[in-house]
Computed example of a mutant assay.
Amino acid sequence: MKKRVFISFDFDNNLSLKNLLVGQAKNPDSPFEISDWSLKEAAPEWDWMYKAEQKIKCSDIVVVIAGTYTYCASGVKKEIALARKHDKKVVQIKPIGTNPIRVYDAGVMYDWTWENLKKLLS
């Protein structure tokens, strides 16, 4: 059974990276699946938090895409807090050749390689 992944990312700066991870989940040998659960519409914070919490609760793991400004993205911090509240494993991945600041309480940071994804998400 494939792991259900919730992606936490800096919407303003890393949407293309999120889309890349969604694409990788479609590989035939992918051990994980991603329902595109990004909240696309602007919503009051209480509504956004409720929807994010429901989606995180249905996931097996939260993957934080660590970009240049992810460490200070307020939505990412809130999603991590929700993941911790529901005892979900949280890991960070960073694009090869980058050195982003680690997101607080978001778990170990790994290089974003196909091999690492398969190991982390199997």
Results as ranks from 00 to 15, higher is better:
83 A>C: 06
23 G>L: 05
51 K>E: 06
59 S>V: 00
90 V>N: 11
119 K>I: 09
35 S>Y: 14
112 W>M: 14
56 I>N: 06
58 C>V: 00
7 I>R: 10
9 F>C: 02
18 K>H: 14
16 S>M: 06
16 S>C: 01
40 K>C: 02
57 K>H: 03
12 D>V: 02
68 T>K: 15
25 A>S: 15
118 K>F: 00
57 K>D: 08
62 V>S: 03
122 S>Q: 14
15 L>W: 10
82 L>H: 08
100 P>M: 03
74 S>R: 15
63 V>M: 01
57 K>I: 13
119 K>Q: 11
12 D>L: 11
20 L>F: 13
42 A>I: 06
83 A>I: 02
37 W>R: 15
89 K>F: 00
2 K>I: 00
35 S>I: 15
12 D>F: 07
106 A>L: 03
45 E>Y: 15
61 I>P: 06
104 Y>L: 12
52 A>Q: 06
19 N>H: 13
48 W>I: 11
116 N>E: 11
64 V>D: 03
103 V>W: 08
32 F>C: 05
30 S>Q: 07
98 T>V: 05
62 V>G: 04
115 E>R: 13
48 W>E: 01
20 L>D: 13
91 V>A: 06
101 I>Q: 12
28 P>K: 05
84 R>F: 00
119 K>T: 11
102 R>A: 15
68 T>R: 15
